[in-house]
Computed example of a mutant assay.
Amino acid sequence: MSKQEIERFDVGARMSEMAVHNGVAYLAGQVPEDTNADITGQTAQVLAAIDKLLERAGTNKGRILRAQIFLADRADFAGMNTAWEAWVSAGHTPPRATVIAGLARPEWKVEIVVTAAV
């Protein structure tokens, strides 16, 4: 039995943005760059970052196996869903969990983690 290679993207001292192994892309939590945006804007930024990483892995949002969404404030659930529903591919909506969590930076309203088939 041979070991499958692990390809890592944007490797840093603390973490990588993505790892691909055995036909699956595992993304780190993606967060917004412009923290002045409202929840819908921050979510749209995060989803765009996810699109770019998935493209680098040779896959796309229609192949997401699961998504984990972390919200700083329960009141932002509807606004996050507005951006999410505009982004997901009809007929390919992935299993998803959404939790309220204290994020690493107080200005972040959302963080999203996805796993996708390559």
Rank of each mutant, 00 (worst) to 15 (best):
L54W: 06
V110R: 02
T115L: 03
Q45P: 01
V113F: 01
D38Y: 09
N81K: 14
A37E: 13
T93S: 06
N81D: 14
N36A: 11
G23F: 10
A25V: 15
W84K: 01
A83G: 13
M1Y: 14
D76A: 15
L65F: 05
V20C: 02
K61I: 15
S16W: 10
G79H: 12
A86H: 06
E55F: 08
V46A: 06
K109S: 07
T35N: 00
Q45C: 02
V24T: 05
T43V: 09
I112V: 14
P94V: 01
V31N: 01
G23S: 07
A86G: 08
A67R: 12
K3G: 08
Q30V: 09
V20K: 00
H92N: 14
D38K: 03
I112C: 07
V46R: 06
S2K: 14
E85T: 14
R56F: 11
I112F: 00
N22K: 15
M1F: 09
L54T: 15
E5P: 02
G41F: 10
A117T: 13
G29I: 06
A37V: 09
E7Y: 11
E17S: 12
P32C: 08
M1L: 11
L65V: 10
L71T: 01
F70S: 08
A116Y: 03
S89K: 14
E85G: 05
A83W: 00
I64P: 06
A104Y: 10
V113I: 04
A44W: 01
A44F: 04
A86V: 07
L53I: 08
L53D: 12
W108L: 14
R66A: 08
E85F: 08
A44S: 15
R14A: 14
V110M: 00
H92A: 14
V114L: 04
A116G: 02
L47N: 08
G23K: 09
A37L: 15
V113T: 03
P32Q: 03
I6C: 12
A25D: 09
T82W: 00
V20I: 04
R8Q: 11
R74L: 10
L65W: 06
A57Y: 11
R74G: 12
A44K: 07
A48M: 04
E33Q: 07
D34G: 00
L27I: 11
W108A: 06
N36S: 12
R63A: 13
